[in-house]
Design a protein around this nucleic acid. Structure first.
Length: 357
DNA sequence: AAGCCGGGGGA
DNA sequence: TCCCCAGGCTT
């Protein structure tokens, strides 16, 4: 593989075929950083509206650092992987207070910030500062695995380091920003996971998998285990026209987000008494269960969830939370100001209808 | 080295 | 249904 030929063909294709994306209209390192964080494990089309809102609302690290984490999570609501928002918020505080609001252009310094790993560092510093650092993401691994018929499974633990070597050997030292984006753009538009458009690929003449008709065999991937299933009973507890909302701990799954209190169950629906007792342990409240409102299903990365939602009434007691971080008695209107995760959003329409609005 | 962490869209 | 997306952190 001659790197010069590879670069020339790839960059020539990118110059005429790249998409116009919001974060390609700026040279602001902070804005590019925000885009890269949002794009982790997230499709371009999904990230675009979040990116626009985020930059409008928090145009500089200082604006982000000054913001309440709850408002940041609210803006992130629905995007998932909420630790990204918490880390970005923390990192903005460090940039604002220790680096005079300037994104560090030194890889080691930048990568020391929370949420900044090898990919983010290489992406932001190459695109914003022209540093010659090769990115390795899912696209890059797929393109290189086909190009060079690399047998290493891309989803195995050490895959990043394995693919970093050839990527570093190929990156164009004169155009690192365009080069990195070009490999990823090629992976997104041409060298797709399924049905790659090899006929339109500028690298097809260099590609071993294309030559051997083995494109479908790459990238190699370790088999994934199928996700287990969990069942939850969720309580909408009404008291004087308001409902009890609780905030999850800042760490762990959906950290810092709000929800209606819930308890794990075995999947049986009949045991309202057991449900009320578990809710009493969870919230400190004695409740009466009126009826089941609806059932929702939601898929997380590592498990699937079925949730039965029950309309309940507060009977006695003051709120004493077992696992939650805090609580509020909310109306539907005030609930809308809190960051709520997707599984709860899935029954908002049914809840609004039941409450007569 | 392995496990954890969301949500969506295409096939 | 399954796949997989501009990954990083914790243990």
């Amino acid at each position: 593989m001659e790197p010069e030929i590879f670069r020339k063909r790839l960059l020539g294709w990118y110059a005429t075929h790249h998409r116009r994306l919001p974060w390609r209209e700026t040279s602001d390192p902070y804005a590019i950083w925000v885009s890269e964080v949002m794009l982790q494990q997230t499709r371009v089309a999904t990230a675009i509206p979040y990116y626009q809102r985020f930059i409008d609302r928090f145009p500089t690290p200082g604006h982000l650092a000054d913001a309440d984490i709850q408002s940041v999570l609210k803006l992130w609501e629905g995007l998932g992987y909420y630790a990204r928002a918490r880390n970005l918020h923390r990192a903005a505080g460090i940039v604002d207070s220790r680096f005079n609001g300037q994104v560090p252009d030194n890889p080691a310094v930048f990568q020391s910030l929370p949420g900044v790993g090898d990919y983010i560092a290489a992406a932001v510093l190459s695109i914003a500062f022209g540093r010659v650092l090769a990115v390795v993401d899912g696209n890059v691994k797929r393109v290189l695995s086909r190009l060079m018929e690399i047998d290493s499974p891309v989803n195995r633990n050490g895959a990043h380091k394995i693919f970093k070597a050839p990527a570093t050997g190929l990156i164009c030292p004169k155009h690192p920003a365009d080069f990195n984006q070009a490999v990823m753009e090629l992976g997104a538009l041409i060298c797709r996971p399924k049905k790659p458009a090899c006929g339109a690929c500028p690298l097809s003449v260099l590609c071993l998998a294309n030559r051997h008709h083995t494109t479908a065999d790459f990238p190699k991937r370790d088999a994934s285990r199928k996700a287990p299933h969990r069942h939850l009973s969720i309580g909408v507890i009404l008291k004087k026209g308001k409902m009890l909302a609780v905030q999850r701990p800042m760490e762990g799954l959906l950290g810092g987000l709000w929800e209606f209190p819930a308890v794990p169950t075995d999947g049986e629906q009949g045991d309202w008494k057991g449900f009320a007792e578990m809710m009493a342990t969870e919230t400190g409240l004695t409740i009466a269960v009126d009826r089941r409102l609806t059932r929702i299903r939601h898929a997380y990365t590592h498990f699937r969830l079925t949730g039965d939602v029950y309309l309940c009434r507060h009977v006695a007691g003051r709120v004493r939370l077992k696992s939650a971080k805090g609580h509020r008695w909310v109306t539907l209107r005030s609930l809308a100001h809190l960051p709520l995760h997707k599984a709860n959003h899935k029954f908002m329409d049914a809840l609004a209808a039941a409450l007569g609005r």
